[in-house]
Simulated scan of single mutants.
Amino acid sequence: MSSIALVNIHTRALELAPGFFVSVIVATAATFLSEHYGAPVMLFALLLGIAMNFLAADGKCKAGIEFTARAVLRLGIALLGMRITLEQIATLGWKPVALVVIVVVATIAVSVVAAKVLGFKRIFGMLTGGATAICGASAALALAAALPNHPQKERATLFTVIGVSALSTVAMILYPMIANWFALSPQEAGVFLGATIHDVAQVVGAGYSMSTETGDTATVVKLMRVAMLLPVILCATLITRLQGADPTGKRPPLLPMFAVGFLVLACINSTGWIAPAVQGFVNELSRWCLVISISALGMKTQLRELATIGIKPILLMVGETVFLVGLVLLLLHWGF
Rank of each mutant, 00 (worst) to 15 (best):
F44Q: 07
L118Q: 12
A71K: 14
A227Q: 07
G194Y: 00
F281H: 00
S34N: 13
Q88M: 14
L329S: 08
M299N: 15
A146R: 02
A98L: 12
K250W: 06
P151Y: 00
K116S: 14
G19S: 09
A133S: 14
V264H: 05
D199V: 08
V203P: 09
L329W: 02
A142Q: 03
L331C: 04
L6E: 13
L6H: 15
Q152I: 02
I134V: 14
A69Y: 02
L79S: 06
M257F: 11
Q279A: 04
A236T: 12
A218L: 08
L254D: 11
S3F: 00
A277L: 09
G319V: 12
H333S: 09
S209F: 10
A171L: 05
L141F: 04
W334L: 09
A201F: 05
F32P: 06
A131C: 13
V328E: 03
G119T: 08
A218S: 13
A106E: 12
Y175S: 08
I178K: 06
F258H: 07
A69T: 07
L184T: 13
L43I: 08
L33T: 11
H333G: 10
V191D: 10
V105C: 05
L147D: 12
L263M: 14
V220G: 05
I268V: 14
V26C: 06
G163F: 14
A206V: 07
A307S: 14
I294N: 13
L303F: 15
T169M: 15
Q152Y: 00
L167W: 06
G244Y: 10
G326Q: 06
S270G: 07
A17I: 09
P252F: 00
I268Q: 09
A145W: 01
A156C: 04
G130N: 11
Q152T: 08
A137I: 03
V204N: 04
I4Q: 03
A29L: 15
G319H: 04
I134C: 10
A259K: 01
I4N: 08
A29T: 13
L99C: 05
T157A: 09
G326N: 07
T160L: 02
V24N: 01
L229A: 02
A245D: 15
S138A: 15
A56H: 09
G261E: 08
M126I: 06
S270C: 02
F159C: 08
I311A: 13
W334M: 11
L242S: 09
A39P: 08
I173Y: 13
L306H: 09
L306P: 15
V112H: 00
M42W: 10
M317G: 14
S286L: 03
M224F: 06
P40N: 04
V113C: 12
K250M: 09
I314F: 11
A98T: 10
V264D: 05
V200F: 09
L303Q: 12
N269W: 02
A29C: 13
L73G: 02
P148K: 04
L238D: 02
R12G: 00
A179K: 05
L193K: 09
M317V: 11
R12P: 00
I77F: 08
T271H: 10
G136T: 08
L79R: 08
A206W: 03
Y208R: 11
L324G: 06
G19C: 04
L118W: 01
A139C: 03
A195I: 06
V200L: 13
L86I: 09
A144E: 13
T248E: 12
T301D: 14
V101D: 05
P252V: 01
A236N: 06
N8R: 11
A106W: 02
L99A: 09
T217S: 06
M228G: 11
L327W: 00
